[in-house]
Design a binder for these strands. Structure first.
Lengths: 332, 332
DNA sequence: GCAACCAGTTCCCAAGGGGGT
DNA sequence: CACCCCCTTGGGAACTGGTTG
């Protein structure tokens, strides 16, 4: 038994040999190389033969030769991401793929004991939902990654004006104000990793409240595992606060639950609104009003931003009006 | 201005040139190549110079030359994964990294409009939490991926006996039975993607119930968006069922919520236990008893399995006793 | 340490056919 | 009618950065 099948992978050279043409030509056809014209007949033969042999380009070889991996790395924050971020990522994948890129997602863990994925993947673009830390930026640069979004060059305060930050708090506050609540409090998780985004949202909430003629807004950090929500509702009750804007549904549930346990009715004595529209909001009793973001739109936007950063395609990065919807339920 | 800095990445050749030695030697040192002895002095110089120049191996080039990407692709199911799967993945990353592999996670979307990531990444191993569909297997084979876990060769029924499937339902049923509930029902989501795992868990629950001398177990599919939980609790109440084992915390919350809205007390008239110990379980009022799996352990196990599949390392794939804990709260 | 290799990509050039002068 | 030029088509070979006999 000498002629053992090596079962090697099919290469472009195999396709070329089988057709009696050159590797280069195979490459030209399969890549639609601009500046090279190939007769329609040859083109057809190449495509057919490649399919027949089951040819798959070797991605590592491609990456080496062209000097780019065609990978976009989406870095997700370590903290509980907005629910249904999944769809949003699916949509981003779809758009990127049409442009020849692959989207890989990666959750950055605070502990940082593992080597970040950008070192192992050599992505063309690293894109995050929040500005990166100096440490991460240094690590990326050391790995030769030049395209980073959000761009560390620009003012890091920029993203704070993005609709994904702004739209929610605006809706939350104006909803409560519209219902007649004149004394409103803001509640967020007691998590330092979230500090920046909490501050940004709080600022928007304050701003909106001021525009609607409300007075100062109490601001609390809640730990869902201890008694902080209990003391918060007791003090609010004492101080005449009747509406609470929560950073997310989890905090909203903690507040509403603490109120119920203290005999404060929801929404009668205290109205609560969450953010993200997670299953928790729908299932809690009473069900929680919340904010639902247009995640498909967000996904498309991420993809466009990445394409733009990678090669200037993707059109003008026009911020499409990100739609956030108020989902009204029993808690307000 | 002729000597413009090209700002090219630092290659092993640069390190070699700068030291007046050959590229090969640099490779030997940096890879600790066995069967090649390098003097300690040279070794030190190479390492120092590589660090000084900021040398990073080009992963695509490595992958091409050695014929393997050192990437393990963990495919996550499309359905809501157990909460805090994150930790579990972090632990798996850590273990794999020590062995020189990178872990990339990937959520496989049902719609399947996007090209699966294994085609773009050429991972050495693809590992899933559930057996793969024939279609996915075919696509992997076409991409040249030979190492797949769970091994499609073996009986696909195998994983159903794994502790991650078995431990939860056992604890749930025995807990309720231990509290004196003699008529128990099982509630799961109405989601066809989950059918296999639901059936597996249900079988375990039935088995456990029988062993504890309980009679038949009603089995329901719940859609959290409609009235199915309402009709379920009404019928259970009528039929004298006093305990419910839920597939996850979300279903448990839907059941408990429906009961409350119908004036059925929890746990007084109906006890409910969830699974996964998500924030929902802690925050719901009344708080929900649940099952917490040892996710770090699960992560380590995944990593070991992958290493074993990749190169036979990782030790015997001894199933470490996966610990599942009962978290008792107000709902039981 | 030299040199062959991994599997593509791409620059540059050669051959050949067609049309214009 | 002969000649020349240009454009289309496709090939040769260097190159990407490491690994290994």
């Amino acid at each position: 038994m000498t002629g053992e099948a090596k079962n090697r992978r099919v290469t472009a050279a195999d396709v070329a040999r089988s057709l009696g043409i050159s590797r280069a030509t195979v490459g030209f056809v399969l890549n639609n190389t601009r500046g090279q014209t190939i007769s329609e007949a040859t083109r057809k033969r190449v495509i057919a033969e490649a399919a027949r042999l089951g040819y798959r380009p070797h991605t590592a070889a491609q990456a080496l030769a062209r000097g780019s991996s065609r990978i976009v790395l989406l870095v997700l924050p370590d903290w509980p991401v907005e629910h249904s971020l999944g769809r949003h990522i699916a949509e981003a994948s779809r758009v990127l793929e049409e442009a020849g890129y692959s989207l890989v997602t990666y959750t950055l863990h605070e502990t940082g004991v593992t080597r970040p994925l950008w070192e192992a993947l050599d992505p063309d673009v690293v894109i995050g939902m929040l500005p990166f830390s100096e440490k991460d930026l240094a690590s990326m640069r050391a790995s030769g990654i030049t395209t980073i979004v959000p761009d560390p060059q620009t003012e890091p305060a920029e993203w704070q004006k993005g609709p994904s930050v702004v739209a929610g708090p605006e809706l939350q506050v104006s909803h409560l104000a519209g219902l007649g609540h004149s004394r409103i409090a803001f509640a967020a998780p007691d998590d330092s990793r979230l500090a920046r985004i909490i501050d940004a949202r709080l600022a928007v909430a304050r701003d909106t409240a001021a525009r609607m003629g409300l007075t100062g807004m109490d601001d609390r950090r809640i730990n869902v595992h201890d008694a902080s929500s209990r003391s918060a509702v007791l003090e609010w009750s004492r101080d005449g606060i009747t509406g609470v804007v929560a950073y997310n549904d989890e905090i909203a549930a903690a507040i509403a639950g603490a109120a119920l346990r203290e005999g404060i009715s929801v929404p009668g004595q205290l109205a609560v609104i969450g953010h993200d529209d997670t299953p928790l909001a729908e299932l809690f009793v009473p069900s929680l009003s919340s904010i639902r973001l247009d995640i498909e739109g967000l996904g498309r936007q991420i993809a466009m931003t990445a394409l733009n950063a990678a090669d200037g395609r993707g059109g003008a990065a026009e911020d499409p009006p990100l739609v956030a919807d108020l989902i009204r339920r029993e808690s307000t």
